[in-house]
């Protein structure tokens, strides 16, 4: 399943990139380059070969772990993209954690107190949450919490004056490993606004999904059985009901994680977050084919991997699903 998807993906990214008008040679050499110089460069880059040869060369290189070389910096993409990738990942992960934690609990609260003011309030919050575009929320946050109140920083991952040497490039994790509490606090403060901006929509969607899923589960016979055994209400909700309610919620997680990667690009632009979104954005402007191609392919691969993880999660939670045994 994974392999055909990836092959398709590589063809699509390759075609899109080559369909974009504009010559990379021109982008490198500038508007006033001589036609001869451009000709020579294009020849060197293999841009004059037939498209299918370019494609096979591209795939061949991919298989060797070579994602191409950035035309702008002359460095291999595989190496260059890594810190950007982890920055995006850290942001997306934090946003997802916020979305899951608040979304699930808000949904549980609503379901548990169905048709009370608590329920209505939570669902109004969720409705507002889904209706707010990421960029608008991001800008409002910056305006209120960074500019007006001056509580939190509005740009980047860390104060540049901070003495900090990243290891894995997950700043929160690195700061924790190094026991550098100042850096941890600073990384956390930088993370807060973009993660909230990015996590709000999935939070709201997860809250709604959790509510409806929990309502259904709470009415089921096995919940009555658990009550008849004398199980505490807290355990009934968080153990007996939630594990069942999670089955449909997981689907939403998977879809949201995909949307989150998309939303990350907007968020990164607003908060000057040095992630893949920014990296690709710059590459597109510079017509850096190799970077754009590989960047999109990597994002697509991550998307496929997330879906794979979601499938595995299903099987882990629901014993009725067994892959490969049917």
């Amino acid at each position: 399943m994974l392999i055909p998807v990836l092959i398709g993906m590589s063809i699509i990214t390759f075609s899109i990139v080559h369909a974009i008008p504009g010559s990379p040679a021109k982008a490198i050499l500038g508007e006033r380059a001589t036609p001869e110089a451009m000709e020579r460069l294009e020849e060197n880059m293999g841009l004059n070969d037939p498209l299918y040869i370019q494609y096979f060369r591209y795939v061949g290189n991919l298989l060797q772990g070579d994602l191409g070389t950035s035309v702008q910096t002359g460095r291999p993409v595989a190496e260059e993209i890594l810190p950007y990738l982890t920055a995006t990942f850290e942001l997306a992960l934090c946003a997802m954690l916020i979305a899951i934690f608040f979304g699930v609990n808000l949904g549980i609260l609503s379901a548990w107190r169905q048709n009370t003011s608590v329920d209505y309030l939570s669902m109004v919050i969720a409705l507002i949450g889904v209706s707010m575009p990421v960029f608008w929320l991001g800008l409002m946050e910056q305006w209120i919490f960074a500019q007006e109140l001056d509580w939190l920083p509005s740009n980047g991952r860390m104060d540049p004056r901070m003495f900090f040497e990243p290891i894995t490039n997950f700043y929160l994790l690195d700061a924790l490993i190094q026991g550098n509490l100042y850096a941890l606090q600073d990384a956390f403060r930088h993370m807060l606004l973009p993660a909230i901006a990015l996590g709000t929509i999935p939070m709201a969607i997860i809250a709604r999904m959790t509510r409806s899923s929990m309502l259904e589960v709470l009415r089921s016979d096995y919940i009555r059985t658990a009550r008849a055994k004398g199980v505490r209400e807290g355990l009934i909700i968080y153990k007996h009901a939630l594990k069942n309610a999670f089955i449909p919620i997981i689907t939403v997680f998977g879809l949201q994680m995909g949307l989150l990667l998309g939303g990350a690009i907007l968020t990164e632009t607003i908060f000057s977050w040095p992630g893949v979104g920014r990296y690709l954005y710059d590459a597109i402007h510079a017509r850096d084919y190799a970077v754009v191609q590989s960047g999109i392919l990597i994002v697509a691969t991550i998307f496929v991997i997330i879906n794979l993880i979601v499938d595995l999660l299903y099987a882990w939670i629901d014993p009725r699903i067994q892959y490969g045994k049917e």
Binding site: D221, Y222, R224, R227, A228, G230, D318, R320
Partner: peptide, 21 residues
């Protein structure tokens, strides 16, 4: 008291047990 002094079983054995435990 529930499950200790008084217990109950129900009509629907197919749905009365929690499917994920």
């Amino acid at each position: 008291i529930r499950g200790n002094v008084v217990s109950m079983i129900f009509q629907e054995p197919m749905t009365s047990l929690n499917p994920v435990f």
